[in-house]
C-alpha cells in the first residue's frame, strides 16, 4: 500500500519481507503438524487389536445410510422441542431474574421463591428432573396434566434451563453500571421504568453470547427426553440399533447433533467477537495480533 509521495524506507521494506517469510513458514508448520497429528491418530486407531470389529459395529456405511431418514425424523422432534422450550425458558428466566432484583416487603415472597427455585433447579441433575416430572406428574392423575412424553420432557427442560438462564440474565442486570441507574432516576424515572428502559436493554445485549451458549447446550440436552420414550433422534437411533444389531445409528445421531449445533456455535462466536471479546477469537490467531 503506497501513497503518493511516500516510498517505504529500507527498514520497512526489510520488515515486510521478514513478515512475509514468517507467514509462509507458519502456514507450512501448521499444515505439517496437523498432518502429523492426524496420521498418528489414524495409525493408533487402525492398528488397535479391536479395530476391525469396532469398525464393523459402529461405522457400517450400509446401516448408516439406512438409518439416516429415521434418525433425521427424530431430530426434527428435537429441533421443535428446542425452539419451543427456548422461547418459554427465555420468558421464565427473565421473570425469575427480575423477581430477584425486586425490592420492598411486598415482593419478599416472590423474591424468596425465585431464589429458592434457582437454587433447587441449578443443583438437580437434569436427568433426575426428567424422571421425576416424566413419571411423577402423570402419577398424580390430576385432570389436565399432560401425559405425553414430549410435553413432560419439554417441561423438565424448561424447569432446569430457566434456572441457568435466569442467572445469566441476573449477571447481565448486575453488570449495568450503577451510574446508569442514577442518571435514569435523576430524570424522575421510577424503579420499574429504569429497569425496563435503561437496565434491561443493556443487560440483555451483553448476555447474548452466553445465552446462545446455553441454547446450544439445550439443543443437545433435548436428546435426554428419549428416556421418557419420546421418539427423538436418540430414541430413533436406539430403535435402529436394535433392529440392525449394530451401533452405527448412534454415530449417525451424534454426527447430526454436531452438525445442528455448529451453526449456532459459530453465530455465538461471531456475536461475541463483535462484542469485542478477546477470548472469542479463533485459535488460528494464536495469542492475538501482538508479537
Amino acid at each position: 500500500m503506497t501513497r503518493p509521495g511516500w516510498t517505504p524506507s529500507p527498514v520497512q521494506v526489510d520488515r515486510l519481507a521478514y513478515r512475509r517469510r514468517q507467514s509462509v513458514r507458519s502456514t507450512a508448520v501448521a499444515v505439517a503438524s496437523t498432518a502429523a497429528v492426524v496420521a498418528v491418530a489414524v495409525l493408533v486407531l487402525t492398528s488397535s487389536p479391536g479395530w476391525p470389529r469396532v469398525r464393523q459395529s459402529f461405522l457400517d456405511p450400509q446401516v448408516a445410510l439406512e438409518s439416516v431418514p429415521r434418525v433425521l425424523e427424530g431430530l426434527w422432534l428435537n429441533v421443535r422441542i428446542m425452539v419451543v422450550a427456548a422461547v418459554v425458558i427465555l420468558v421464565v428466566a427473565l421473570a425469575l431474574a427480575i423477581a430477584r432484583t425486586l425490592r420492598g416487603p411486598v415482593f419478599f415472597p416472590l423474591r424468596a421463591a425465585a431464589t429458592a427455585y434457582v437454587d433447587i433447579f441449578r443443583g438437580l441433575p437434569l436427568i433426575l428432573v426428567l424422571l421425576l416430572v416424566g413419571f411423577g406428574l402423570p402419577g398424580l392423575r390430576l385432570q389436565g396434566i399432560p401425559t405425553s412424553a414430549v410435553v413432560l420432557g419439554g417441561l423438565a427442560l424448561v424447569l432446569t434451563y430457566s434456572a441457568y438462564v435466569a442467572e445469566v440474565f441476573r449477571a447481565g442486570i448486575e453488570s449495568v453500571h450503577p451510574s446508569q441507574v442514577a442518571a435514569a432516576r435523576s430524570l424522575g424515572l421510577s424503579r420499574g421504568q429504569t429497569m425496563r428502559t435503561v437496565v434491561l436493554p443493556q443487560a440483555v445485549r451483553r448476555v447474548v453470547p452466553p445465552l446462545l451458549n446455553d441454547l446450544v447446550s439445550l439443543q443437545k440436552d433435548s436428546g435426554l427426553i428419549s428416556i421418557l420414550g419420546a421418539i427423538d433422534a436418540v430414541r430413533a437411533a436406539q430403535i435402529s440399533t436394535a433392529q440392525y444389531a449394530n451401533f452405527t445409528p448412534y454415530v449417525v445421531a451424534g454426527v447430526l447433533f454436531v452438525l445442528l449445533t455448529i451453526p449456532l456455535t459459530r453465530l455465538t462466536d461471531a456475536l461475541a467477537r463483535r462484542g469485542g471479546w478477546a477470548g472469542a477469537t479463533s485459535g488460528l490467531a494464536g495469542a492475538g495480533e501482538l508479537r
Binding site: Q180, A182, A183, A184, S186, G188, L189, Q202
Partner: peptide, 26 residues
C-alpha cells in the same frame, strides 16, 4: 427528582439509545 436536573462527571448517557431518545426519555 423530576423537579431537578442533574449532570454527572462521566455523562452517564444511555449508550443503547440515540441522542434524541436520551433527551426525550424523561
Amino acid at each position: 427528582r423530576a423537579r431537578m436536573g442533574m449532570v454527572f462527571q462521566s455523562f452517564n448517557l444511555f449508550p443503547h439509545m440515540r441522542v434524541l431518545d436520551n433527551v426525550t426519555l424523561a
